[in-house]
Every structure is written in C-alpha cells, then in structure tokens.
C-alpha cells in the first residue's frame, strides 16, 4: 500500500507541474497548447457481446450498456471532446441494450463516425448505421438474420407476434439511419443459401455499401479524416452564425 501511495504522489506532482507550466504559457503568450488543433475525438470501442439486462457468464467478452450510455452523455456534455469515433467488432447481443446505445449515438449533436472492423453482426447492424457517417473495412462482415429463440414456447401466436414486433424495432431503426429499405432489409434477413443452418445474409465490406447500409469502404485514416472534416465544418458553420 505504501508503494501505491508513492506512485500516486509522484503522478500528482507531475500533473501539478504540467498545470503550472500551462498557466505560465497562458500568462506569457495568451494561449495554451491544445492536444490536437483539428479537434479532440473520443474513441469508443464496442466489442464482443452487447450485455443487457442479464449478466453474461465470464467466458463472454462484453460491452456493458450501463457504462456506454452515461459515457455518451459525458462525451456530448464535455466541451473538450469535439467528435466521437465508434469502432465496432461485435457478434451482437441484447436487442434493447443495442438499440439504446444506437439511439444515443444517433441523437448526438457532435460529429459521429463509425468503423466496422472484423464484424458488425446482428444487433451490431443498428449500431453501425447509428452514426452520422459509417465506414466498413473491406474484410469486415455483417450478418443480417432474424431474431429467434429456443426452448419451450407457450402461446405460439403471441410469441411470434412479440418477436415480429421486436424485429420491427431493428428494421425501423435501420430504415431511419441508412439508405436501405425495410423490404430489402427483411429480404436479406430471410434469404436462404448464405448460411449453413440458418436464414440470413452475410455481407462483406463492399456488399454492405452496395445495399445502402454503410456509407463507404475504408479504414482508420479515412474515418479520422472524415471526423476531422466534420468538426471543421461545424466550426465554420458556428463562425458563420456568429458573424
């Protein structure tokens, strides 16, 4: 414990020195060093399963929505953060938690760009389309398939209706935030031949762009360039309004 204390004090002392240095720079030159003159971005990585109302067993890698949702509030509120980069490599997860995060990202005022790497499957699809502009790596895939369940079912017509309604929430969200149509999206969900023991479609990078889900095929540099240009546009607009 003693050694831990020592480490903290030295960090604190360094932090104070840095603050003093910054204060002096402001006094002498009237300015301070901004970390990046083009704007500061917050990078949010969404990986593994989206964990919702049920805590998943420890062998799953999870992204917990109760951490992401307030973090997004913090990002939107923080003056030092100018844009959000969402990096996705997810296998899906809880429908409500996924939609909650997607709605939060979609309703942010700050520029948001998403980049799908590896995979953006199932409930990862609404997460990928939620941002203002989306990219997908050429080798990344997105699986579009119906919501399903297994085990004992009591009241089949009611259960079917309930699942259909849950699925409709996903379809409608994707419709609102991408240029694909609900008919086309549902058609992809129920396609046979793509998957061995299931219905659905596996989209590769370019296919996801062709069907209107994702804006462009790209990687890190394109995503960063896009977010910085969006920040710049926002600044110009603000300056124009003030003038």
């Amino acid at each position: 414990m003693k050694s831990e204390n020592k480490v903290t004090f030295s960090v604190d002392a360094e932090g104070k020195d840095k603050e003093k240095e910054q204060e002096e720079t402001i006094k002498e030159t009237g300015s301070t060093t901004v970390e990046n003159p083009r704007g500061n971005i917050h990078c949010l990585t969404i990986i593994g399963q989206i964990e919702g109302h049920i805590v998943l067993p420890p062998q799953n890698k999870t992204t917990k929505y109760e951490h992401i949702v307030p973090q997004l509030v913090g990002i939107e509120e923080n003056r030092d953060v100018h844009g959000l980069l969402v990096i996705l490599n997810t296998v899906g997860g809880d429908v409500e938690a996924g939609l909650a995060i997607a709605e939060m990202i979609a309703s942010m005022q700050k520029p948001t760009v998403s980049l799908v790497l590896g995979g953006g499957h199932s409930i990862g699809v609404p997460l990928a389309v939620a941002s203002s502009y989306s990219y997908i790596a050429p080798s990344a895939t997105m699986t579009i398939h119906p919501i399903r369940m297994n085990g004992l079912v009591i009241g089949i017509p009611q259960t079917f209706e309930y699942f259909d309604k849950m699925q409709e929430r996903v379809v409608q969200f994707v419709k609102r935030h991408s240029s694909t149509t609900p008919e086309k999206f549902k058609e992809m969900m129920l396609k046979t031949g793509d998957m061995a023991s299931d219905v659905g479609t596996i989209l590769f990078g370019e296919d996801a762009v062709k069907c209107g889900l994702i804006n462009e095929v790209g990687g890190l540099s394109q995503a960063l360039e896009k977010i910085y240009s969006m920040i710049e546009e926002g600044r110009k607009k603000k300056a124009g309004e003030q003038a």
Partner: peptide, 17 residues
C-alpha cells in the same frame, strides 16, 4: 432478448461459474 450470431448455448454455456 439476445440477437447474436453466437448460439445461445455457447453464450450461456458456463452459467454455473
């Protein structure tokens, strides 16, 4: 409700842990 490409029994396989 889980919407994932990972089968349910894999997700909840080790639920005794």
């Amino acid at each position: 409700m889980i919407h994932s490409i990972i089968p349910m029994d894999v997700i909840f396989g080790d639920s005794n842990a």
